[in-house]
Design a protein around this nucleic acid. Structure first.
Lengths: 248, 248
DNA sequence: CGACTGCCTTGATCAGGATCAAACGGAAGG
DNA sequence: CCTTCCGTTTGATCCTGATCAAGGCAGTCG
């Protein structure tokens, strides 16, 4: 086990175009400068694989644009998505060389990479980096546990509603707990990818999407364009507590 | 979201009776001494609640003995376990005050606690602590993702086998990938708790346990005492890759 | 233009696990 | 001793989502 996704909160990035800079926001600039020298970019096309489970992975990276997904696969082909990386998310694990799951470009993708060794060295001399990474990892862990509740106990309809709610919220101003007015966004996932995310089959995803449409919870135009006329209505369908309850 | 479990690797503890000392194993002893002064113990009876989801939680702690579980609950009562804390595991999140899930003593439990504020201050002056906590959190995240695969894609039988395999391995020398010979251990969970862990109902757990017994994969004596005559046989039932594949 | 391909929808049927219900067995307590 | 209670087993039935199969709809390439 060795790969991880870590979120860089937008407010830490300021107007810096390369989000990962935030890692050093609180440290003196010297190490940051070294970091800048080290970095390099890699692009991937939609559907392309970034690393395979079991491969050696001697870099860490943050997503600049596009979406990547982490998936685990059983020998007989059953697949489960275990992470979804959006711009500013971090991937890679200091201290381990082997990737524990597949990383795939879901859309066209640009990542900003650092070789692992120098990054680790930098980490050990700039304490804030480890602290920031710790915070991000804890957030990731919380998200994983919420996801576990979804996988273990929610109905198909609730799963779909939860996913749409997450995407809608992320799309309509990241911090808004309960966005007001209609929200419209592009689905970045195919039905099959949604199924892998939710622990369902693609047929069930398709049926439940249309059920939510039929019931007026969402509108579908062009299969991939989603309109949520009333966010609260959607939130009711998720089975979650009404209040996000996210205080400090 | 704010509560977390973090493993302290046994080798870090040496012969220290209180595992959490390991946190400072690599730092100079001054901060450790301060830590020793700060600590205090709390005991709980089996079934007793440690903190409720949403409560203020102004301490962090490590498990000294017994087992605690982290669970999330939906308003209608559906429950999903999202963490299982064994001796030497760490719980609590530096930087947040609110507990995001219920923490419950599954067996009689002793925890060693630190008030959060001083612990955080100590963290910021001893960099190795943050690094160690980061490592532990990353391990926890990997475990959560393995768990997600189980919840999303495994059959009831595979889920049961996976849980028994985890417990058997943990019981028969922690590091052994594939223990040899018969393993015998006490089940620390009720059928209902197993169900909450696996995303099943307790009836299904009971049936599948007996099915595994009928098929000679495990032996049951006294409902809670498990004997695994052949670990490899059990491992086949989990659906996982044959090799644990855990290299660095 | 037609054929192909990738993605999605829809229908029919099946089955794994949930649900509802009853009963068992051992421990604790009167 | 009997009763109660808790955890567990077992049975009967139901239902959600999986599976198998076919067809639709764009976009693309020959």
């Amino acid at each position: 086990m060795s790969l991880h996704t870590l979120k860089l909160a937008p407010q830490d990035c300021g107007d810096c175009p390369i989000r990962h800079r935030a890692v050093c926001a609180r440290c003196d600039g010297q190490e940051l400068a070294k970091l800048e020298e080290m970095k390099y970019y890699r692009s991937f096309e939609a559907g392309q694989n970034v690393v395979w489970s079991g491969d050696r992975m001697d870099f860490v990276a943050s997503v600049v644009s596009g979406i990547a997904s982490l998936t685990q696969t059983m020998e007989d082909g059953r697949r489960q998505m275990v992470g979804l990386l959006l711009p500013s998310d971090f991937v890679g694990r200091p201290g381990r060389t082997m990737a524990p799951y597949d990383v795939t470009a879901t859309t066209d993708l640009v990542m900003c990479c650092f070789r692992r060794k120098p990054f680790e060295e930098m980490m050990s001399v700039t304490p804030h980096v480890a602290q920031r990474l710790l915070e991000m990892t804890l957030d990731e862990l919380d998200a994983a546990r919420e996801w576990m509740l979804l996988l273990g106990r929610k109905t198909a309809r609730e799963k779909i509603a939860s996913l749409l709610s997450i995407l809608a919220r992320r799309d309509a101003g990241l911090k808004a707990r309960a966005p007001k007015g209609a929200i419209s966004f592009e689905l970045p996932l195919t039905r099959e990818e949604m199924a892998d995310y939710l622990g369902l089959t693609l047929e069930t995803v398709s049926r439940q999407m249309n059920a939510l449409k039929r019931d007026g919870v969402v509108e579908l135009e062009e299969k991939r364009r989603i309109v949520v006329p009333n966010f609260d209505r959607l939130a009711e369908e998720t089975g979650d507590d009404a209040d996000g309850g996210y205080l400090s």
